[in-house]
Design a protein around this nucleic acid. Structure first.
Length: 195
DNA sequence: ACATCGATCTACT
DNA sequence: GTAGATCGATGTA
């Protein structure tokens, strides 16, 4: 399956309620066209971050870092964290409202050799099973921040795949609002960051 | 200016 | 299970 067979998710997809978007983005395919080849993977885990959510980067207003979250929906928000990792989000909600869906894990599809090189491991279930790993595998960093996911070298497309059972859980790695059930993943999928 | 800490990952015990 | 890596963004002074 090549990305040219698929359509990017339309802008309206990113305008639905952010928690619903986090759930319904599961099964879609993240595609990154790079100079070294096309990388793609099926999204198997995601989390919602909303404007009134204490753990959301944007909850206290716009800053230099979180500005992309307040931009138009359907764009990328890539941020640097822990001094060495990046995390990739799809911006949701109308322009001016800071919300996004954190893509936490994908199941590698195309460009697996390149992902193996980028990650320094050949264990398939360890290539993109976490937000930092995913960005390393896909070569996502500052350059991809704010890219338009509905039509650029970085896209999220629908290839017609219908997910099976979706598990709901609390989000990972946050202190505030730790009880919000805003993490979603595909039951039994070996590429998620945690069961 | 300075101190704190993070939507993480790896290696080690 | 726990510690260490590593640094930019952010808040406080």
């Amino acid at each position: 399956m090549s990305c040219t067979d698929c359509r990017p998710l339309p802008r309206e997809f990113y305008l639905q309620d952010t928690v619903r978007a986090a759930r319904s983005i599961l099964g879609k395919v993240l595609v990154h066209r790079t100079e070294d080849g096309v990388l793609s993977g099926r999204i198997v885990e995601a989390e919602a971050y909303t404007s009134n959510d204490p753990s959301c980067h944007a909850c206290k207003g716009m800053t230099k870092r979180n500005a992309p979250m307040f931009g138009p929906p359907g764009h990328a928000y890539v941020y640097f964290t822990y001094g060495m990792y990046h995390c990739f989000n799809a911006v949701t909600a109308p322009e001016g409202v800071g919300e996004a869906v954190l893509i936490r894990a994908v199941e590698p599809l195309e460009g697996i050799d390149l992902m193996i090189r980028n990650r320094g491991t050949d264990v398939l279930t360890n290539l993109a099973s976490g937000p930092g790993k995913l960005c390393m595998a896909f070569g996502l960093g500052r350059e991809q921040n704010t890219l338009d996911l509905t039509g650029s070298d970085l896209m999220i497309v629908d290839d017609g795949f219908v997910p099976g059972e979706i598990v709901t859980s609390t989000r990972i790695g946050i202190r505030l609002a730790a009880d919000y059930p805003w993490r979603f993943y595909l039951r039994g999928n070996p590429h998620v960051s945690r069961k």
